[in-house]
Simulated scan of single mutants.
Amino acid sequence: MTLPTSLCEARNRFKRHLDGCDWSELTAGRKRILEVFLRLASIEGYSAVTMRTLAKEANVKAASIYFHFPGGRSEIVAQSLRWHYSNWGYSILEAIDKASEPEQFWDVLVSAVARCQISIPASDLWDLLVRMDRAGGFLETEFRREIDHWLDLCADLFQASAAAIGYAVDRGRINMVMSMLDAGSNWSEWSGDAADLDAIAEQAIIVSRAILSAPMGSLRRTAAPDEMAIKYSR
Rank of each mutant, 00 (worst) to 15 (best):
T2S: 11
L3K: 03
L3V: 01
T5L: 05
T5H: 03
L7A: 03
L7Q: 07
C8A: 08
C8F: 08
A10P: 03
A10N: 05
F14C: 02
F14V: 02
F14Q: 06
K15H: 08
K15C: 06
L18H: 01
G20R: 09
C21Y: 13
C21L: 15
C21K: 04
T27A: 09
A28Q: 14
A28M: 12
A28Y: 14
R30L: 06
E35F: 08
V36G: 03
L38K: 03
L38V: 00
I43K: 07
E44H: 15
A48S: 12
A48E: 11
V49E: 05
T50H: 05
T53D: 05
L54N: 07
E57M: 07
E57S: 14
E57K: 13
A58Y: 07
V60M: 10
V60N: 02
A62F: 12
F67A: 12
P70D: 08
P70V: 09
G72F: 09
S74D: 14
I76Q: 04
I76G: 01
L81G: 10
Y85R: 06
G89H: 06
Y90C: 10
I92G: 01
A95C: 10
E101P: 03
E103Q: 13
Q104M: 14
Q104I: 11
L109D: 01
A112N: 01
A112G: 10
R115A: 10
Q117S: 15
I118A: 08
I120L: 14
I120M: 08
L128N: 13
L129V: 03
V130H: 04
V130F: 10
R131N: 14
R131G: 07
R131P: 06
R131I: 15
A135Q: 12
G136K: 02
F138E: 05
L139E: 03
E140H: 14
T141M: 09
E142P: 03
R145F: 11
I147L: 05
I147F: 04
D148C: 01
D148S: 14
L151F: 13
L153V: 00
D156Q: 07
F158G: 04
Q159V: 04
Q159R: 15
A163S: 11
I165E: 03
G166H: 05
Y167N: 01
A168M: 08
R171L: 11
M176Y: 14
M178D: 09
L181T: 07
A183E: 06
G184P: 10
N186G: 03
S188G: 04
E189R: 13
E189L: 14
S191P: 06
D196M: 14
D196V: 06
I200T: 02
Q203L: 14
Q203M: 13
A204M: 01
I205P: 02
S208Y: 12
R209H: 15
R209V: 09
I211Q: 04
L212D: 00
A214L: 15
M216D: 09
G217R: 10
T222N: 05
T222S: 04
P225W: 00
D226T: 10
A229P: 00
A229G: 08
R234P: 05
